[in-house]
Design a protein around this nucleic acid. Structure first.
Length: 215
DNA sequence: TAGGCCATCTGGTCCT
DNA sequence: AGGACCAGATGGCCTA
């Protein structure tokens, strides 16, 4: 309503930087929007723009410069500034997109580390975060638990434990699932990942899951 | 059809 | 100045 009107209206003509739509998990089902970065209007060379021609420094002879049509320098400057803003915006859009993709990749890695009962169940973003929170809490509680049946904190025993490094550097290529954890005892909690042990209606903070029964 | 989820765009702010 | 981060807005897809 607000920002888009202005930006969309005036600036759409000057699109550039055709950013390749990155194939993300869900990007497939999101068709290319006819949004701002989709219009390829500007051919790059400002001078070659097929748009409205500015009255050049023509061969008008001695004709009196028509005051009405003469493109004021200010207009040109404004146009240039607008184009600059536009390209900056597009670049920022690309960065933002990449940033969100990285975020989603990290979220996917987190999903892979969480046990879910229907093996292929896909948690939503917020579910993933909440469940991870509960899962970590449950694992920590299990470690504190006295008694023999404590699961060994082996390399693959607990998610995130030495088995694989979080390695934030592994963003681009996305060496996906870093060896999902063997279902440790708290994995039972995965029964209802979607309903993390009593999350508040608002969802945060979730109540502490009961250690043994995890809800 | 309403509601949930998601990707993307956008402008603002902070940091380097 | 430019990049990262953030939050709001918007629109598409999917499911009950």
């Amino acid at each position: 309503m607000c920002a888009q009107t202005e930006a969309a209206e005036a600036q759409e003509a000057a699109g550039a930087l055709a950013l390749p739509r990155v194939a993300s998990t869900a990007a497939a089902r999101t068709p290319p929007r006819t949004g701002a970065d989709e219009d390829r209007g500007e051919p790059g060379a400002p001078g070659a723009a097929p748009g409205p021609r500015l009255p050049g420094p023509g061969h008008e002879g001695r004709r009196r410069p028509s005051r009405a049509r003469a493109a004021p320098r200010g207009a040109r400057a404004a146009e240039t500034a607008q184009r600059l803003r536009r390209t900056r915006r597009l670049k920022a859009n690309g960065r933002e997109r990449r940033r969100m993709h990285r975020l989603n990749a990290a979220l996917d890695a987190l999903r892979a580390a969480l046990p879910t009962l229907p093996e292929d169940a896909r948690l939503t973003k917020v579910q993933t975060l909440r469940f991870a929170h509960n899962y970590i809490w449950a694992l920590a509680a299990a470690l504190r638990l006295p008694g023999p049946p404590r699961p060994p904190p082996g390399p693959a025993g607990a998610p995130g434990s030495a088995g694989h490094s979080p390695s934030p550097a592994s963003t681009g290529s996305g060496t996906d699932s870093p060896a999902p954890p063997a279902a440790a005892s708290p994995a039972r909690c995965a029964r209802s990942p979607a309903s993390p042990a009593g999350a508040a209606p608002d969802g945060w903070p979730p109540r502490r899951p009961a250690v043994g029964g995890c809800a």
